[in-house]
Every structure is written in structure tokens, then in C-alpha cells.
Computed example of a mutant assay.
Amino acid sequence: MTDSSAAPAQPVDDRDVVVELKDVHAGYLPGVNILNGANLVARQGELIGIIGPNGAGKSTLLKAIFGMVQVRGGDITVNGESILGLKADKLVRRGVGFVPQTNNVFPSLTIEENLQMGLYQNPKIYASRLEFVTEIFAELGARLKQRAGSLSGGERQMVAMSRALMMDPSVLLLDEPSAGLSPVRQDDAFIRVSDINKAGVTTIMVEQNARRCLQICDRGYVLDQGKDAYEGAGRALLEDPKVIGLYLGTLGQDAA
């Protein structure tokens, strides 16, 4: 585990890096940054967890990767190429999938139509990608004609993840996948995230349930005031006294 305020950044092996943020400054309003020098590396096949107090910039970091917030400094690369300034459709073509916390399905459309919307840029691969996502979310395969608006919150989350996976992304960005779900559905959401990652999809997850997030992720980043204050293996961060004292005492304290 490293304290980024005290230790210099370590060299990155570019051969297996999928996503990298270098000293990123970004914000929504002119002259006001939410991210203030954020750094992150996600390698092939990793599950990365991002935790931190409210207002730390966790969701903003994902939105910066997906071109939804203005990046004013630093760089963001996907598979070694800068993606700064690219719109969402271009980012999807570059292999970036994003599942927002809310409004993440088309409620008037069926599950099948939602999945087809995820492939509007490449409909020819629908059959193979449908097979992939229904291996992870088997329930959806039997309910393709059901309208998404009739689903529970946890079921909608499954549809949203599946739609983002339809384009075979290099990296999947998940913003608070357990938000608003019952404890049972929260556990199910974390299991599904792990299943997606085990299927070979590099995953970056922002999560308020800090303990549960760190239990399943390969590596975690603790954001504070728009910077990565701590970084390390998920289990190591769970046991680090500084992280426990500063963050885990108020984050996800009800999680086992």
C-alpha cells in the first residue's frame, strides 16, 4: 500500500495497462476542479475499487474517463492511446463501457431492446454477445420480452450492466452498482461484478459500500479531495490502520 502524498509514483508496465489516469484535473464549472491530480492504473483483467468520502470525486473520476466532464489537466489513456476530448460514441468504439448509477435503462423498452441499444454501432455481433451476457445473467435470457420498466432495481442494474457489455468493452466503468438496493440485492450485485471480472473484463467500480468493495477488488484507490490518498491491494487497505481510522470508520460500516 502506498501513500501518494509521501511516495513518488512507481513506473507503470505499459504492456498490460488498459486504463491510466495521470495527474488528472477536472471539473464541471469553469475554474472549479473536483479532481485535483488524480492518478489510477487498471491492468488487464483487474477489478479496481474506488472508495472515499462523499464529495471526494469518485463518480467524477469515472465521468472524466467517459468524457462527461471537462478534463483541464493531465491525461487519460485507454490501451495506450489518449482519449481526451472523445465523445461517448467514440469511447464505446474504443472499448469503454459505462454504467451510471441512475437512469441506466430504457424503461419503455424490453430487455431485448435495451441490449440491442447497446449494440447500435455493431449489431452483427448480437448473437455472440447475447450468449456472453446471459451466461452471467441467466435470468435475463428467459425474460427478454419483458419491459425494463417493470423490473426491480436489482434487475434493472443487471440489464444496465448487460447492455454495457454488449460491445465487448476493454474496460467496464461501474458507478455505485449497489446504490439503493436491499442488502440481499447488494450482495447479488457484488457477486455479479465479480462474475463479470472473472469473465475477463477489466472493471473499475466506484462504491460507497467501502468494506464490501475492498473485499472483492484486486486493488483499491482511496480518493480524498480529488486525489488518490491511498492505493493498494483491496485486502491490505481493509487492514491498514490509517485507512480504517480515516475512512472505514464512516464508510460502509454496516458491511460485514
Rank of each mutant, 00 (worst) to 15 (best):
G73W: 01
K124Q: 15
G80R: 08
R147W: 02
R93G: 02
M68Y: 01
L84Q: 13
A160P: 09
L165Q: 08
S182V: 13
P123Q: 11
P169L: 11
V71T: 05
N104P: 07
G200Q: 03
N197V: 08
G154R: 04
L84T: 03
L62P: 01
L86P: 03
A179F: 13
R94F: 05
A138M: 09
E131M: 08
Y120W: 14
I191T: 14
V159G: 02
I191N: 14
E131F: 04
G80M: 06
T134W: 08
K198V: 00
G80N: 13
M167K: 05
Q146W: 01
A160D: 07
S162H: 10
G85C: 04
R185M: 15
R185S: 11
E155W: 05
A64E: 02
T202S: 11
L172G: 06
M158N: 10
Q186P: 02
Q101K: 07
K145H: 12
D187I: 13
V69P: 00
L62S: 09
V105L: 12
F106K: 05
K63P: 00
F137G: 03
Y120V: 15
L109M: 15
K63L: 01
G153V: 12
R143I: 05
R93Q: 14
K87N: 13
A148V: 10
E155Q: 15
T134D: 08
A164T: 10
A148T: 13
G67N: 00
G141V: 02
D195K: 14
P107E: 13
L144P: 03
M68I: 00
L173H: 04
Q70R: 14
G200C: 07
K90G: 04
L109P: 04
E139M: 09
Q116N: 00
Q121M: 12
L130R: 14
A164R: 08
L174S: 10
S108D: 15
I111E: 07
R94Y: 00
A127M: 01
F66K: 03
L109R: 05
V99A: 09
M167L: 07
A160N: 13
L115G: 10
E113G: 09
L91I: 00
L62N: 01
Q116G: 02
R143P: 01
V105M: 05
K145P: 00
R93P: 00
R147I: 06
V71C: 03
V99F: 14
M158D: 08
L181G: 09
P100C: 11
L130T: 01
I83D: 05
A142N: 12
Q70I: 01
I125A: 06
G200H: 05
G73S: 11
V133A: 03
L144G: 02
L140K: 03
E155S: 06
D75Y: 13
A138I: 07
L181H: 04
L109Q: 13
R156G: 05
Q186C: 14
Q70V: 02
L91Y: 05
Q157L: 10
D89C: 10
D175R: 09
R185A: 15
V184W: 10
D75M: 10
K124R: 15
Y126N: 06
G200A: 07
R94D: 03
F132T: 07
F132W: 09
